[in-house]
Simulated assay, not measured.
Amino acid sequence: MDRKILIYPRGNGEGKGNSMSMFLCLDETTLPPDTKLFVKFLLRVISQTPTKSDDFEFKVENHFGPSCLNWGAQKFMSIVKLNDPKKGYLVGDTCIAEANVTLIGEVTTAS
């Protein structure tokens, strides 16, 4: 299961202009036909402050399949919070994001 994090720094959809949007995306070429994956995942933006105590997280359980190749939040984090130098999420032009993904199950509907 190949996956990547898709980030819109100035937002996407209802987050456009007010939030950073972040999604976990599955590469459809790595998904067998007629298969759905049920996953639990956490998307996180890491604080670059010395204490790293203010990491920002989004947790969800969802399925990925041919009709749903990405899932996340259009309003993951407000642009104001992202740009707050005291929080340390954006330092210079660097933002550190990570995904923690747990595969719960796989279902194949082909006969």
Results as ranks from 00 to 15, higher is better:
Met1Arg: 06
Met1Phe: 10
Asp2Met: 00
Asp2Cys: 07
Asp2Ile: 00
Asp2Glu: 07
Asp2His: 07
Lys4Pro: 12
Lys4Phe: 14
Lys4Gln: 15
Lys4Arg: 15
Ile5Thr: 11
Leu6Gln: 03
Leu6His: 03
Ile7Ser: 05
Ile7Asn: 03
Ile7Tyr: 03
Tyr8Cys: 05
Arg10Lys: 11
Asn12Met: 07
Asn12Ser: 11
Gly13Arg: 05
Glu14Gly: 12
Glu14His: 13
Lys16Phe: 12
Lys16Pro: 03
Gly17Ile: 04
Asn18Ile: 14
Ser19Cys: 11
Met20Leu: 14
Met20Asp: 03
Ser21Glu: 01
Met22Thr: 01
Phe23His: 02
Leu24His: 02
Leu24Tyr: 02
Cys25Trp: 11
Thr30Ile: 06
Pro32Glu: 04
Pro33Glu: 03
Thr35Arg: 04
Thr35Asp: 10
Lys36Cys: 14
Leu37Met: 10
Phe38Gly: 06
Val39Phe: 03
Val39Thr: 08
Val39Lys: 01
Lys40Gly: 14
Lys40Arg: 12
Lys40Ile: 13
Phe41Asn: 03
Phe41Gly: 04
Leu42Ile: 12
Leu42Cys: 14
Leu43Ile: 01
Leu43His: 01
Leu43Lys: 02
Arg44Trp: 00
Val45Cys: 07
Ile46His: 06
Ser47Tyr: 04
Gln48Ile: 01
Gln48Trp: 01
Pro50Arg: 08
Thr51Lys: 12
Thr51Asn: 13
Lys52Trp: 04
Ser53Lys: 11
Asp54Met: 08
Asp55Leu: 00
Asp55Pro: 01
Phe56Trp: 10
Glu57Asp: 13
Phe58Cys: 02
Phe58Pro: 01
Lys59Tyr: 10
Lys59Pro: 00
Lys59Thr: 14
Glu61Ile: 14
Asn62Lys: 11
Asn62Leu: 10
His63Phe: 15
Phe64Gly: 01
Phe64Ala: 04
Gly65Pro: 00
Gly65Gln: 00
Pro66Ser: 14
Cys68Tyr: 08
Cys68Met: 15
Asn70Gly: 13
Trp71His: 10
Gln74Pro: 00
Met77Pro: 02
Met77Arg: 02
Ser78His: 02
Ser78Lys: 01
Ile79Pro: 05
Lys81Asp: 15
Lys81Val: 08
Leu82Arg: 02
Leu82Tyr: 00
Asn83Thr: 11
Asp84Ala: 08
Pro85Tyr: 07
Pro85Leu: 11
Pro85Ala: 13
Lys87Thr: 07
Lys87Trp: 03
Lys87Pro: 03
Gly88Asn: 03
Tyr89Ile: 04
Leu90Ala: 06
Leu90Glu: 01
Leu90Met: 10
Val91Asp: 10
Val91Thr: 15
Gly92Asp: 10
Asp93Thr: 11
Asp93Cys: 07
Thr94Glu: 13
Thr94Phe: 07
Cys95Tyr: 00
Ala97Tyr: 02
Ala97Val: 09
Glu98Asp: 08
Ala99Tyr: 11
Asn100Gln: 13
Val101Lys: 06
Ile104Asn: 04
Ile104Thr: 05
Glu106Ala: 12
Val107Ser: 04
Thr108Tyr: 09
Thr108Leu: 09
Thr109Pro: 07
Ala110Ile: 10
Ser111Glu: 12
